[in-house]
């Protein structure tokens, strides 16, 4: 096997995730895109683990998953709270902090 295709796939998925963050308005979908970016980086980490012949990359991917889980829990709780007060899950609606 070669490393390059995996890494390129990882890069493409990361780019798609970042564009998703920029174009979607639903906070939950934005979150999903962030997850997509995290997963893309995980793929790169796991690929590097294989390429270098040690398990540190897999450990890193594991930590990323744990942190992502924590992040999702808190993030979704925040979205819930905002939805309760504003009756909207759009990230554009929460735009009072501006000029």
């Amino acid at each position: 096997m070669s490393t390059e295709p995996y890494i390129l796939l990882s890069a493409i998925l990361f780019t798609i995730g970042s564009v998703g963050v920029l174009v979607r308005r639903n906070a939950i979908v934005v979150f999903m895109c962030i997850e997509l970016m995290l997963n893309a980086s995980n793929l790169a980490l796991v690929t590097f683990a294989k390429a270098n012949g040690n398990l540190d990359g897999q450990i890193a991917a594991f930590f990323v998953m744990v942190v992502a889980a924590a992040e999702v829990v808190v993030g979704l709780a925040i979205i819930m709270t905002i939805f309760r007060t504003r009756r909207s899950a759009s990230v554009d609606d929460a735009s009072l902090l501006k000029y």
Binding site: S18, L22, V91, D92, A94, S95, L96, K98, Y99
Partner: peptide
């Protein structure tokens, strides 16, 4: 320049990108 601070998270994300 103030107009850049439009309050939209997505705009800020764009500049981060």
């Amino acid at each position: 320049l103030r107009k850049v601070q439009n309050g939209f998270v997505r705009s800020y994300a764009l500049s981060i990108l």
